[in-house]
Amino acid sequence: MSSNTEVPEVPADRSAEDATQSAPPTDGTNTPLPRPSDSAAVEDPPPALSVLEENIHSAETPGEKFFPSFAVTEGLEEKANERIAQYPDDQKRSAVLPLLHEVQHRFGYISPESIDWVAGKLDIEPIKVVEVVTFYPGFRQKAPGKLHIRVCRTLSCAMGGSYELMDKLCEIAQIDRSASDPHKDPIAISPCGNYSVEFAECLASCGTAPVCLVNDDFHEGVTCDKAEELLNSYQNA
């Protein structure tokens, strides 16, 4: 260890330090190690979600008002049956992705109720739907903005200025991306709920960089000076 390493502060609370040095419990219960910094914060934390609840939970967002809440309509039922028929009778599970796409297209995101519905429709356990939803970046579990913008961040687009484009879009739409995380929470939404942004990985149009998808519309050569024009083009839509 190099000599200029700061000497760590001795924790004020001796009991916390003792706890970390004593042998870990051997009865299999994983009691979390108390951390010195925790000793001050003893206020009531919000009720913790179980792992399952956390995985299916849809956080409330300002974009919600633009999407209907999940309901099984005749149209959805019909479309779902059509998709299921694409696969052999004993392989209904294959239709998980198409059904989730149908749900997300109509209701904006995948809610816990829709997971149950898809599972029931395909005669599989809901966990088999949850594992798919949580794996693919293409499925979201909270409502995006009315206009969801996916900006490509991979090499060619980054060289073409996609990071600048993202900054500009955030500036115009007043979006704060500081809490976004590419794995856990890639989508950032404007307070008004009209816009949301997300960095996407390679949209396969590297020759016309930088590119982005606005809902289902593809736009190429969107340098940051065209950001305003892009958003304006949706004003009347």
């Binding site: 392989q91 599970r93 992705l97 088999k128 693919y136 990985e201 390679c202």
Partner: peptide, 27 residues
């Protein structure tokens, strides 16, 4: 011929990952 849409995962380009995805699983 049927269309099957993926969901933005690079690994689905790997042929056996693609097959798993087509079977409705994680790829």
């Amino acid at each position: 011929i049927y269309i099957h849409r993926g969901a933005a995962a690079y690994i689905c380009g790997e042929e056996t990952g693609l097959i798993e995805s087509l079977e409705g699983k994680r790829p």
